[in-house]
Design a protein around this nucleic acid. Sequence first.
DNA 1: TTGATAGTTATAGAACTATATAAATGTTTA
DNA 2: TAAACATTTATATAGTTCTATAACTATCAA
Lengths: 103, 103
Amino acid sequence: MGSPWKALSDDNRRRILLLLKKKEIVTPTEIAHHFNFTMSGVSINLRILKEANLITEKREGKNKLYSLNRTTTAELARFFDDMYDYKLKSLKEYIENKERKRK
Amino acid sequence: MGSPWKALSDDNRRRILLLLKKKEIVTPTEIAHHFNFTMSGVSINLRILKEANLITEKREGKNKLYSLNRTTTAELARFFDDMYDYKLKSLKEYIENKERKRK
DNA sequence: TTGATAGTTATAGAACTATATAAATGTTTA
DNA sequence: TAAACATTTATATAGTTCTATAACTATCAA
Protein backbone atom coordinates (compact mmCIF):
# COMPACT_ATOMS: atom_id res chain seq x y z
CA MET A 1 0.00 0.00 0.00
CA GLY A 2 1.44 3.34 -1.05
CA SER A 3 1.52 6.35 1.22
CA PRO A 4 -1.55 8.56 0.84
CA TRP A 5 0.64 11.48 1.90
CA LYS A 6 2.97 10.99 -1.03
CA ALA A 7 -0.01 10.50 -3.31
CA LEU A 8 -1.54 13.78 -2.18
CA SER A 9 1.69 15.72 -2.35
CA ASP A 10 1.45 16.09 -6.12
CA ASP A 11 -0.63 18.93 -7.55
CA ASN A 12 -1.81 17.01 -10.59
CA ARG A 13 -2.97 14.09 -8.51
CA ARG A 14 -4.98 16.39 -6.26
CA ARG A 15 -6.53 17.92 -9.37
CA ILE A 16 -7.46 14.46 -10.58
CA LEU A 17 -9.08 13.72 -7.24
CA LEU A 18 -11.11 16.91 -7.39
CA LEU A 19 -12.24 16.02 -10.90
CA LEU A 20 -13.26 12.57 -9.70
CA LYS A 21 -15.18 14.23 -6.92
CA LYS A 22 -17.03 16.41 -9.40
CA LYS A 23 -17.74 13.82 -12.06
CA GLU A 24 -18.23 10.81 -9.79
CA ILE A 25 -16.73 8.42 -12.34
CA VAL A 26 -14.15 9.03 -15.01
CA THR A 27 -11.96 7.20 -17.54
CA PRO A 28 -8.24 7.83 -17.98
CA THR A 29 -8.95 9.23 -21.45
CA GLU A 30 -11.37 11.79 -20.05
CA ILE A 31 -8.81 12.86 -17.46
CA ALA A 32 -6.09 13.16 -20.08
CA HIS A 33 -8.31 15.33 -22.27
CA HIS A 34 -9.60 17.43 -19.44
CA PHE A 35 -6.16 18.44 -18.18
CA ASN A 36 -4.21 17.91 -21.37
CA PHE A 37 -2.06 15.22 -19.76
CA THR A 38 -0.45 12.33 -21.60
CA MET A 39 -2.17 9.00 -21.21
CA SER A 40 0.86 7.42 -19.62
CA GLY A 41 1.12 10.25 -17.14
CA VAL A 42 -2.51 9.83 -16.19
CA SER A 43 -2.11 6.11 -15.94
CA ILE A 44 0.83 6.36 -13.60
CA ASN A 45 -0.85 8.92 -11.37
CA LEU A 46 -4.00 6.83 -11.22
CA ARG A 47 -1.90 3.89 -10.15
CA ILE A 48 -0.33 5.91 -7.36
CA LEU A 49 -3.73 7.11 -6.17
CA LYS A 50 -5.08 3.57 -6.37
CA GLU A 51 -2.15 2.12 -4.42
CA ALA A 52 -2.73 4.76 -1.76
CA ASN A 53 -6.34 3.61 -1.61
CA LEU A 54 -7.63 7.03 -2.53
CA ILE A 55 -9.53 5.83 -5.57
CA THR A 56 -11.08 2.63 -6.84
CA GLU A 57 -10.99 1.14 -10.29
CA LYS A 58 -13.27 -1.07 -12.30
CA ARG A 59 -13.24 -2.22 -15.85
CA GLU A 60 -16.22 -1.85 -18.12
CA GLY A 61 -15.51 -3.32 -21.52
CA LYS A 62 -12.78 -1.35 -23.17
CA ASN A 63 -12.81 1.35 -20.53
CA LYS A 64 -11.56 1.59 -17.02
CA LEU A 65 -13.65 3.61 -14.64
CA TYR A 66 -12.15 5.41 -11.69
CA SER A 67 -13.93 6.91 -8.74
CA LEU A 68 -13.12 8.35 -5.34
CA ASN A 69 -12.72 5.98 -2.47
CA ARG A 70 -14.66 7.88 0.11
CA THR A 71 -13.63 5.79 3.06
CA THR A 72 -9.86 6.02 3.07
CA THR A 73 -9.50 9.55 4.20
CA ALA A 74 -10.15 8.34 7.71
CA GLU A 75 -6.44 7.62 7.88
CA LEU A 76 -5.58 11.16 6.94
CA ALA A 77 -8.37 12.62 9.03
CA ARG A 78 -6.98 10.76 12.01
CA PHE A 79 -3.67 12.52 11.62
CA PHE A 80 -5.38 15.87 11.52
CA ASP A 81 -7.36 14.94 14.54
CA ASP A 82 -4.27 13.80 16.44
CA MET A 83 -2.63 17.01 15.44
CA TYR A 84 -5.26 19.63 15.57
CA ASP A 85 -8.10 18.36 17.67
CA TYR A 86 -9.02 21.77 18.89
CA LYS A 87 -8.56 22.99 15.32
CA LEU A 88 -11.18 20.54 14.20
CA LYS A 89 -13.54 22.39 16.43
CA SER A 90 -13.13 25.48 14.33
CA LEU A 91 -13.44 23.26 11.32
CA LYS A 92 -16.68 22.10 12.82
CA GLU A 93 -17.84 25.69 13.05
CA TYR A 94 -16.82 26.18 9.45
CA ILE A 95 -18.83 23.18 8.40
CA GLU A 96 -21.78 24.38 10.41
CA ASN A 97 -21.65 27.78 8.75
CA LYS A 98 -21.57 26.07 5.45
CA GLU A 99 -24.54 23.98 6.35
CA ARG A 100 -26.41 27.07 7.45
CA LYS A 101 -25.75 28.70 4.11
CA ARG A 102 -26.83 25.60 2.28
CA LYS A 103 -30.27 25.75 3.82
CA MET B 1 5.50 29.88 0.94
CA GLY B 2 6.24 26.19 0.64
CA SER B 3 3.61 23.59 -0.07
CA PRO B 4 2.08 22.13 3.09
CA TRP B 5 1.41 18.96 1.10
CA LYS B 6 5.08 18.46 0.40
CA ALA B 7 5.89 19.30 3.99
CA LEU B 8 3.46 16.67 5.25
CA SER B 9 4.56 14.01 2.79
CA ASP B 10 7.64 13.18 4.83
CA ASP B 11 7.31 10.71 7.71
CA ASN B 12 9.89 12.38 9.91
CA ARG B 13 8.27 15.77 9.53
CA ARG B 14 4.90 14.38 10.53
CA ARG B 15 6.54 12.78 13.56
CA ILE B 16 8.02 16.15 14.47
CA LEU B 17 4.59 17.74 14.19
CA LEU B 18 3.06 15.13 16.47
CA LEU B 19 5.82 15.70 18.99
CA LEU B 20 5.18 19.44 18.84
CA LYS B 21 1.55 18.72 19.43
CA LYS B 22 2.35 16.67 22.50
CA LYS B 23 4.97 18.92 24.04
CA GLU B 24 3.52 22.28 22.97
CA ILE B 25 6.93 23.85 22.55
CA VAL B 26 10.23 22.27 21.66
CA THR B 27 13.81 23.15 20.73
CA PRO B 28 15.68 21.60 17.79
CA THR B 29 18.02 19.92 20.26
CA GLU B 30 15.14 18.21 22.03
CA ILE B 31 13.76 16.97 18.71
CA ALA B 32 17.16 15.68 17.65
CA HIS B 33 17.57 13.77 20.91
CA HIS B 34 14.05 12.47 20.95
CA PHE B 35 14.24 10.91 17.50
CA ASN B 36 17.98 10.50 17.26
CA PHE B 37 18.17 12.84 14.26
CA THR B 38 21.15 14.99 13.41
CA MET B 39 20.85 18.66 14.28
CA SER B 40 21.17 19.72 10.67
CA GLY B 41 18.48 17.30 9.61
CA VAL B 42 16.13 18.64 12.24
CA SER B 43 16.96 22.19 11.27
CA ILE B 44 16.17 21.60 7.62
CA ASN B 45 12.90 19.84 8.36
CA LEU B 46 11.87 22.59 10.74
CA ARG B 47 12.57 25.10 8.00
CA ILE B 48 10.37 23.19 5.58
CA LEU B 49 7.56 22.99 8.12
CA LYS B 50 7.96 26.67 8.90
CA GLU B 51 7.91 27.68 5.24
CA ALA B 52 4.73 25.67 4.83
CA ASN B 53 3.30 27.62 7.74
CA LEU B 54 2.70 24.52 9.77
CA ILE B 55 4.80 25.65 12.70
CA THR B 56 5.98 28.91 14.20
CA GLU B 57 9.36 29.80 15.56
CA LYS B 58 10.62 32.18 18.20
CA ARG B 59 13.96 32.75 19.70
CA GLU B 60 14.53 32.74 23.42
CA GLY B 61 18.13 33.47 24.22
CA LYS B 62 20.35 30.75 22.90
CA ASN B 63 17.44 28.52 21.99
CA LYS B 64 14.86 28.52 19.29
CA LEU B 65 11.42 27.39 20.27
CA TYR B 66 9.08 25.76 17.85
CA SER B 67 5.37 25.18 18.19
CA LEU B 68 2.45 24.12 16.06
CA ASN B 69 0.75 26.73 14.01
CA ARG B 70 -2.79 25.82 14.76
CA THR B 71 -4.38 28.04 12.17
CA THR B 72 -2.84 26.93 8.90
CA THR B 73 -4.54 23.65 8.48
CA ALA B 74 -7.52 25.53 7.08
CA GLU B 75 -5.83 25.29 3.70
CA LEU B 76 -5.53 21.56 3.96
CA ALA B 77 -8.92 21.22 5.55
CA ARG B 78 -10.43 23.06 2.63
CA PHE B 79 -9.11 20.45 0.26
CA PHE B 80 -10.57 17.70 2.36
CA ASP B 81 -13.78 19.59 2.47
CA ASP B 82 -13.87 20.09 -1.30
CA MET B 83 -13.11 16.45 -1.69
CA TYR B 84 -14.97 14.71 0.99
CA ASP B 85 -17.59 17.10 2.22
CA TYR B 86 -19.80 14.34 3.39
CA LYS B 87 -16.81 12.86 5.14
CA LEU B 88 -16.26 16.04 7.11
CA LYS B 89 -19.83 15.88 8.21
CA SER B 90 -19.11 12.58 9.86
CA LEU B 91 -15.95 14.12 11.20
CA LYS B 92 -18.12 16.84 12.68
CA GLU B 93 -20.23 14.22 14.42
CA TYR B 94 -17.06 12.61 15.67
CA ILE B 95 -15.89 15.91 17.10
CA GLU B 96 -19.22 16.47 18.72
CA ASN B 97 -19.05 13.09 20.39
CA LYS B 98 -15.60 13.90 21.58
CA GLU B 99 -16.78 17.17 23.03
CA ARG B 100 -19.63 15.44 24.76
CA LYS B 101 -17.20 13.04 26.41
CA ARG B 102 -15.00 15.89 27.49
CA LYS B 103 -17.79 17.48 29.51
C1' DT C 1 -7.79 -12.98 -37.17
C1' DT C 2 -7.23 -8.25 -38.09
C1' DG C 3 -7.80 -3.46 -36.98
C1' DA C 4 -9.18 -0.03 -33.90
C1' DT C 5 -9.54 1.76 -29.43
C1' DA C 6 -8.21 2.13 -24.43
C1' DG C 7 -4.90 1.73 -21.21
C1' DT C 8 -0.44 0.22 -19.07
C1' DT C 9 4.45 -0.59 -18.62
C1' DA C 10 9.50 0.22 -19.75
C1' DT C 11 13.04 3.21 -20.08
C1' DA C 12 15.68 7.20 -19.65
C1' DG C 13 16.74 11.87 -18.35
C1' DA C 14 15.78 16.01 -15.65
C1' DA C 15 14.34 17.81 -11.44
C1' DC C 16 13.71 17.35 -6.85
C1' DT C 17 14.36 15.43 -1.91
C1' DA C 18 16.69 13.64 2.02
C1' DT C 19 20.63 13.24 4.80
C1' DA C 20 25.35 13.43 6.39
C1' DT C 21 29.55 15.99 7.37
C1' DA C 22 31.78 20.16 7.88
C1' DA C 23 31.91 25.05 8.13
C1' DA C 24 29.60 29.19 9.57
C1' DT C 25 26.43 32.19 12.37
C1' DG C 26 24.17 34.00 16.42
C1' DT C 27 23.75 34.31 21.52
C1' DT C 28 25.21 34.15 26.17
C1' DT C 29 28.42 34.32 29.87
C1' DA C 30 32.89 34.76 31.96
C1' DT D 1 36.75 39.69 23.73
C1' DA D 2 37.01 34.64 23.95
C1' DA D 3 34.87 30.38 24.92
C1' DA D 4 30.87 27.59 24.92
C1' DC D 5 26.55 26.43 23.36
C1' DA D 6 22.58 26.27 20.00
C1' DT D 7 21.33 26.28 15.57
C1' DT D 8 21.67 27.07 10.58
C1' DT D 9 23.76 26.91 6.06
C1' DA D 10 26.87 24.81 2.41
C1' DT D 11 28.15 21.05 -0.04
C1' DA D 12 28.07 16.55 -1.78
C1' DT D 13 25.82 12.38 -2.66
C1' DA D 14 22.33 8.81 -2.86
C1' DG D 15 17.84 8.12 -3.75
C1' DT D 16 13.21 9.37 -5.39
C1' DT D 17 9.80 11.42 -8.38
C1' DC D 18 8.04 13.26 -12.57
C1' DT D 19 7.36 13.20 -17.38
C1' DA D 20 7.84 12.04 -22.09
C1' DT D 21 8.39 8.71 -25.80
C1' DA D 22 7.96 4.25 -27.34
C1' DA D 23 6.66 -0.42 -26.90
C1' DC D 24 3.35 -3.46 -25.09
C1' DT D 25 -1.31 -5.60 -23.51
C1' DA D 26 -6.32 -6.01 -23.34
C1' DT D 27 -10.90 -5.66 -25.18
C1' DC D 28 -14.13 -5.27 -28.74
C1' DA D 29 -16.21 -5.61 -33.34
C1' DA D 30 -15.96 -6.68 -38.16
